[in-house]
Design a protein around this nucleic acid. Structure first.
Length: 780
RNA sequence: GCCGGGGUGGCGGAAUUGGCAGACGCGCACGACUCAAAAUCGUGUGCCCUUACAGGCAUGAGGGUUCGAUUCCCUCCCCCGGCACCA
């Protein structure tokens, strides 16, 4: 009696992980003759401390796609790195009384180990870490390029301030008025900040997204976020009691054709404040309203109060086309930050204007609409308007008043003003700092690094001070994928030749939460680098696929407080990495995610055990025809499904194939086994390798094999089972030779007892026959 | 409110894009093995009616187009995501 060994993933998986590393199996050369390059990109993780199920979902499943592409003959790069600067590390370090660098490097070490347990084909030789000076040197270099072109600039604006994190946030990082990271309510502060002129690229960011193979949702989310509206700017002359002539106010509208229905203008409290600062003598009531609404704005917005408030400014405006004099009002339903901060109110056509007019007893005029183009032409003639396009998109505030980030490579000189640190002096290294905690006064902790702080002005040589703000981490991640092409380059961020080999990225898989942040910023960076002649492409990611989120068994988002966290390390110990990978794939559509079902994973585990057992048996001498056909069908189907990331059905196809094998012969020929192992390889790389090298005694890895070919001719069978319908309802399923004629099929169908019963002796009035597929006899 | 995506057995989900709805898995039931349990294997499993065959109903609700609709069109309901007083 031979003792059959049992499937022990915890033994074989680490073994192969070590072997693969020793063999440098996943090291990607810059080129391989006869193999096209393909970078399959996943979002590099933030080193938060522990690899969670979400990471497995994000990395182990695209790994299947990457492995399949490799077997299809591509020189596939599957790179990985760490997006390691940022607030959470800093906050965690403060809590634990550690230095952020110590905390972050420790986490990276731990997560690297955990990532290895996944058995993914990461090319670790190309690892990129945003906190390495060799990397952020180029982040700073890019900042300098943008500064040179006026795309990075310093300006005083009202910014989002998180009082808890004590730093500025980009608009994209404010969700429902709260800090995206900590949930604290964001306040507005007027501060000088470093910004990036992403609005300059608004049109190209909208238009360029059209041609991308991206989820519609992502493209629409970006377009929505950019919020382009085409319309006109209209200039209104004002008459202010007791003041000299010559004042104007400008409004923006998408509906210039409604200009004859304008019964009043409304300006935002911000605009009113501007007027007052410029010397406008407003009434006490106006002053009171403006102060109150400027203070109250965010709170009310959060409460969802849509009750409109406003006050008569006591100023009149003249309609440039009708000459009519209309009142100007101040109301906070008009935003200071959008358009011109003032609107022409058309209560007959706009619901908000109507509500306001009704509330304050203002007239509503249903004047006829005119042709918009003609109106604009007339306004242009009168110098009272012009076509204009506005955007919701705001420039990107990249300044952060925190320690753990890339220093902005600027020097402030009393004589020369802001001067960029010369390229040859980069990187400006982040100084070690004992006390790196944030301050309350809006100044970066780097201001405490006195020695680091003082330097010489690069321009005049006088004593000067370094910029103390650090960059938003989204700057770091806006170009990391390019570095994978040439991660060790010390002369350039990547050589043009290598960029050409790998860019743009043909497939980028990640989470939908980056729709309006990372993906938009990366596109912006790419376009800038393109315009400056540093890269030849102007879109970074040709194809994008979003993955869903894995929830806890209770269907809720996994969180420690809910106690529903599934720890992948624990699952791997219990079932093995291959089972965890395949279960995640099997769960459902990749874009959808879903709850982790602790019972469901056993089905995948059972399948892998049965595969193992099958290979323990002696191989068949002769191939079974049914098994052979199923193998070809599975090859076709799994290939097609891997191509589209329909990973759930690749697993079920393999299961079905195994069911057929077990039903027929419970074994396969050696050649069939080899093909089976290849089909399994992308999904369960360790088991496939074990079977391939240990049972089938192959020398080279299963992961370097070609994807098996299938014979399409084998998939069409000699006979066809044809459902026979009477009036569209199946009454029999009959078997025919696949070359049977329609007449044969109809005759046989009529002869069938059950079909005859429903025909009730009548002749069909219509016969629908799809050769080899279906017959429908219509009698009604 | 606007823009997307979705609603299929007890559960996760399939369905070649208009052609046998429910693949594959979980769960459940019964059986085998076992002193017993677990594991494993076998059989069954949408609902109703049936020993069975046959039949009827069924893809959120209602209507339409079609020989034929989970798939296309219209109306409505519900869930998820994005934007939101954006002029």
């Amino acid at each position: 009696m031979t003792l059959m060994s049992s499937y022990e993933p915890t033994q074989i998986e680490p073994k192969w992980q070590r072997r693969w590393a020793a063999e440098k199996l996943y090291r990607t050369p810059d080129a391989r003759r006869g193999h096209g390059n393909k970078m399959i990109l996943v979002e590099f993780p933030y080193p938060s401390g522990d690899l969670h199920t979400g990471h497995w979902y994000a990395f182990a499943l695209p790994d299947m796609y990457a492995r399949y592409n490799r077997m299809r003959g591509y020189n596939v790069m599957y790179p990985i790195g760490f997006d390691a600067f940022g607030l959470p590390a800093e906050n965690a370090a403060i809590q634990r009384n550690l230095h952020p660098e110590e905390w972050t490097r420790g986490n990276i070490a731990k997560m690297t180990e955990q990532l290895h347990s996944m058995g993914a084909m990461f090319d670790w030789s190309r690892e990129v870490r945003t906190i390495d000076p060799d990397y952020y040197r180029w982040t700073q270099w890019m900042f300098n390029r943008m500064y040179q072109k006026g795309l990075a600039y310093r300006a005083s604006t009202s910014v989002n301030w998180c009082p808890k994190d004590r730093t500025v946030l980009a608009n994209e990082q404010v969700v429902d008025g709260c800090c995206e990271r900590c949930g604290t309510q964001v306040t507005q502060k007027k501060l000088e900040q470093w910004m990036m002129r992403i609005t300059e690229y608004a049109d190209r960011l909208v238009d360029g997204s059209e041609g991308l193979d991206w989820p519609r949702t992502t493209r629409l989310a970006q377009q929505n976020w950019i919020g382009r509206s085409r319309g006109a700017r209209i200039i209104w002359k004002l008459t202010i009691p007791g003041q000299t002539e010559g004042k104007i106010v400008e409004t923006f509208t998408t509906r210039p054709d409604t200009i004859f229905g304008v019964t009043f203008l409304v300006i935002s409290p911000e605009k009113a404040k501007e007027w007052m600062d410029a010397g406008w003598k407003a009434s006490d009531g106006v002053k009171e309203y403006v102060t109150r609404s400027l203070r109250k704005r965010e709170l009310e917005r959060l409460e969802g109060t849509k009750e409109k408030t406003g006050v008569d400014a006591g100023v009149d405006a003249v309609n440039p086309l009708s000459g009519e004099s209309i009142p100007v009002w101040i109301a906070d339903y008009v935003l200071g930050s959008y358009g011109t901060g003032a609107i022409m109110a058309v209560p007959a056509h706009d619901e908000r204007d109507r509500e306001f007019a009704t509330q304050f007893g203002l007239p509503i005029s249903d004047a006829a609409l005119r042709d918009a183009d003609m109106i604009v032409a007339e306004l242009k003639k009168l110098n009272a308007g012009r076509p204009e396009t506005t955007y919701k998109l705001r420039d990107w505030v990249i300044s952060r008043q925190r320690y753990w980030g890339v220093p902005i490579p600027m020097v402030h000189c009393k004589v020369c003003g802001y001067v960029p640190v010369p390229d040859e002096d980069l990187p400006v290294k982040l100084p070690p700092l004992e006390d790196f905690k944030p301050t309350d006064d809006g100044r970066s902790p780097l201001a405490r690094a006195t020695e680091w702080l003082s330097t010489a002005c690069p321009q005049c040589g006088d004593p000067a001070q370094r910029e103390t703000d650090t960059m938003d981490t989204f700057v770091d991640s806006s170009w990391y994928f390019m570095r994978y092409a040439d991660p060790k380059n010390s002369k350039k961020f990547a050589s043009p030749a290598k960029l050409k080999r790998w860019m743009p990225v043909p497939m980028y898989v990640g989470g939908a939460e980056h729709n309006t942040m990372h993906l938009l910023y990366s596109r912006f960076f790419t376009k800038v680098l393109h315009d400056l002649g540093h890269v030849t492409f102007d879109e970074p990611f040709l194809a994008r696929r979003n993955h869903g989120i894995i929830m806890g068994p209770d269907g809720q988002k996994m969180s420690k407080s809910r106690g529903n966290v599934v720890d992948p390390d624990v699952e791997v110990k219990k079932y093995g990495a291959d089972t965890v990978r395949m279960y995640l794939a099997f769960m459902g559509p990749y874009a959808q995610g879903g709850p982790w079902d602790p019972k469901g994973i056993t089905g995948v585990r059972r399948f892998l055990v049965r595969v193992w057992d099958l290979f323990q048996k002696p191989a068949a001498k002769r191939a079974d025809a049914v098994v052979e056909r199923e193998l070809h069908a599975a090859t076709k189907s799994i290939g097609a499904d891997l191509e589209t990331l329909s990973l759930n059905t690749t697993v079920s196809t393999l299961m079905k194939l195994l069911n057929v094998v077990e039903d027929r012969t419970s074994t396969m020929t050696t050649a069939q086994r080899a093909r089976f192992a290849c089909l399994l390889a992308p999904l369960a790389p360790h088991l496939a390798e074990e079977l391939w090298r240990e049972i089938l005694k192959k020398k080279s890895s299963v992961h370097t094999q070609s994807w098996p070919k299938f014979d399409a001719a084998l998939l069409t069978s000699a006979t066809a089972r044809i459902p026979v319908q009477v009036d569209g309802r199946v009454r029999a399923v009959l078997e025919f030779a696949s070359d049977a004629t329609e007449a044969d099929v109809v005759a046989a169908a009529k002869a069938d007892a059950n079909v005859a019963r429903f025909l009730e002796g009548r002749e069909p009035s219509n016969v629908v026959y799809l050769p080899g597929k279906l017959l429908n006899l219509v009698i009604s």
